[in-house]
Computed example of a mutant assay.
Amino acid sequence: MAEVQYLALTTKPSAQLSYTFEAPQATSKPVLVVFVNGLGLPQAFWLPVIAQIKALRQGQSIPAFLTYDRFGQGQTTDRDPQDAGAEDPMHGHDCLASVQDLRQLITQITQDKLGISDVDSISLILVSNSIGCALSRLYAQEHPGTVAALLLLDSVLANSDFVSIFPDPDAADFDPAALRGLPVEAIRAVRAGIRRIFHPDVGSKEGLSRRNLRELLPASDAPVLKGPAGHGPYVTVVGHDFDAFAEESVKMGPPKPVTNLFVNPYWHRYNEGLAKITEVKYSKGPIQAPNAGHFIQKDNPEFVVQELNELLTKVL
């Protein structure tokens, strides 16, 4: 298993990013798989996926693998230098800033580890979870024609404030029938709890802000992305297992009936949109990862390996 290394981005030389890199084996063209974290789990949770995909593909072409922890996350203890003096350090920078860092990291790794000076000449596969899916989409939008495939694991609901998923009992047009017999006070409590934890106004320890994410990604199904071969990238959209997620959500407040009635259908519709950010023939999903809650790479790494291997077969 690759050891954690550190580098300074040339755009931010005063800070160190932690990363792991594994060199390609027996490949006829340069392919780099980059794993993009959510807010919750650091890069270490991708390592079992890499170990399993390498074992599965033994004797076949194996691409280069890159994991990293963003500034202020996991084994990257340095904060984003651009956040210095931020009015609210939990909202120090936005997703576009993180995408710029990712671009610079890929550029340097491509040069230093693969000996390739033209970063856009490599085939790039982005595997991401949660808000990492938003970062991957933004990367593909900002750098059209550079991303060959995306594996999106339970994407963040980028255009939602999360609270509005649930009916507002105090709204003028509230219909009690929408609650299907659930107590009004229970819904009020869920809305309040979700606002405290998941609303975009809630910052993050790493300083990555979601306040403008709705403006950056206003639709789940647009824009349609451009891949490197004159068509859209391969896109596989994976959602959580409804039952596993409902069980997981109880720990954060919402009872299972509330999650099953409102959150799971809402998230599935969002994922149906995500499957449309490429042409139909290059799209797969949404599919559900069996027995996996929000953190699919932790709960079911074997499923991630299966889906990633399918994309590698298409790209390599």
Rank of each mutant, 00 (worst) to 15 (best):
Val4Pro: 01
Tyr6Glu: 13
Tyr6Met: 12
Leu7Gln: 09
Ala8Thr: 14
Ser14Ile: 03
Ser18Lys: 04
Pro24Ile: 10
Thr27Leu: 12
Val33Gln: 00
Val34Phe: 01
Gly38Ala: 04
Trp46Cys: 04
Lys54Gly: 07
Gly59Pro: 04
Gln75Ser: 12
Asp83Arg: 10
Ala86Asp: 04
Asp88Gln: 04
Asp94Ser: 12
Leu96Gln: 12
Leu102Ser: 01
Leu105Ile: 10
Ile106Ala: 03
Thr110Glu: 06
Gly115Glu: 12
Leu126His: 04
Val127Asn: 07
Asn129Arg: 03
Asn129Trp: 02
Ala134Phe: 03
Ser136Tyr: 00
His143Ser: 09
Ala148Ser: 15
Ala148Ile: 02
Leu150Lys: 06
Phe162His: 15
Val163Glu: 14
Pro169Ser: 14
Leu179Lys: 06
Ala186Glu: 15
Ile187Thr: 08
Val190Cys: 14
Arg195Tyr: 10
Asp201Tyr: 09
Gly203Val: 07
Gly207Tyr: 09
Ser209Leu: 08
Arg210Gly: 05
Leu213His: 04
Pro228Ala: 13
Gly230Thr: 11
His231Cys: 13
Pro233His: 07
Gly239His: 10
Phe242Leu: 08
Gly253Val: 08
Lys256Arg: 14
Asn260Tyr: 00
Val263Lys: 02
Trp267Tyr: 10
Gly273Gln: 03
Leu274Ser: 02
Thr278Val: 05
Tyr282Lys: 15
Gln288Ala: 15
Ala289Thr: 08
Asn291Ser: 13
His294Ala: 09
His294Lys: 05
Lys298Gly: 06
Phe303Gln: 13
Val305Phe: 09
Asn309Ile: 05
